[in-house]
Amino acid sequence: MLPLMIDMKNKQVVIVGGGKIALRRLRLLKEEGAHLTVVSPQVNDEIKNLAASGKIVWKKKEVCTEDIKQAFLIIAATNDPNINEWIAGQVSGHQLINVVHKAEIGNVQVPKIVKKGKLIFSVSTSGASPLLAKEFSEKFASLIDKDIEKKLEEYHQYREQLKSSNLSEEERKKALKQKLDLDKL
């Protein structure tokens, strides 16, 4: 697996299932601006409320091939492994699929993600232990203080200013390196 950062804004995402794991994935993807459709005969109250308020689409039914045909990303999160595996078998080569009960049959895994301002990091155990990934990421996140978040924001603004300057690329790199000064972090 290759870790990538993917802009999910306005991407079509179908989540099949309406339980706790489906909701976790939904929250994550909603925060990133994806267009979300949940396909499930039953969903939990939070998913019902999101659908009632028009923030997501809920198809109250069993999944069929037509439901996932146009999706960029499909999350197979039902409580039935046979349905999840069937969904994985329906995706085309250009679609991404996360199968929550058996990550290895999908082509995407969702790591534990931590955001601290502009700093984003993720931890994966390749499906071996989501609990360990969560614990490790929480320990690492506790090492990051507000000063680092603030410095990263300042660095970003400085970098944007340098991009529009008349400095050569080499001069910009030197200025950025001096501004960052890793010894002070």
Rank of each mutant, 00 (worst) to 15 (best):
E32L: 15
E32R: 15
E32D: 15
A34R: 12
A34L: 14
T37H: 05
V38Q: 09
V38G: 03
S40F: 10
S40Q: 05
S40C: 07
S40M: 05
P41N: 15
P41K: 15
V43K: 06
N44V: 01
N44L: 06
D45Y: 10
D45W: 05
E46Q: 14
E46K: 09
E46V: 10
I47T: 03
I47S: 04
N49M: 12
N49Y: 07
N49G: 02
N49V: 04
A51K: 01
A51C: 01
A51L: 02
A52I: 00
S53D: 09
K55R: 11
K55G: 05
K55A: 11
I56F: 08
I56Y: 09
V57R: 15
W58S: 00
W58D: 00
W58H: 13
K59L: 12
K59Q: 14
K59F: 08
K61D: 10
K61P: 04
E62G: 04
E62L: 14
E62S: 13
E62N: 14
E62A: 13
E62C: 06
V63R: 02
C64F: 02
E66F: 02
D67N: 09
D67R: 04
I68E: 00
I68F: 03
I68T: 04
I68K: 01
K69D: 00
K69S: 06
Q70G: 00
Q70I: 00
A71K: 09
A71Q: 08
F72T: 06
L73W: 11
L73Q: 13
I74N: 06
I75T: 11
A76N: 08
A76W: 10
A77D: 07
A77Q: 09
T78S: 10
T78I: 09
N79E: 13
N79L: 07
D80F: 08
D80T: 08
P81I: 08
N82Y: 10
I83A: 04
I83H: 04
I83V: 15
I83T: 14
N84P: 12
E85K: 15
E85F: 06
W86L: 09
I87G: 01
I87S: 02
G89F: 10
G89Y: 08
V91R: 12
S92Y: 01
G93R: 10
G93C: 08
H94E: 14
Q95D: 04
Q95A: 03
N98A: 10
N98T: 10
V100A: 14
V100M: 13
V100N: 10
H101V: 05
K102F: 13
K102I: 09
E104V: 12
I105A: 09
I105W: 09
I105G: 09
G106T: 11
G106C: 11
G106I: 10
G106S: 12
N107K: 05
N107L: 08
V110S: 11
V110P: 01
V110N: 08
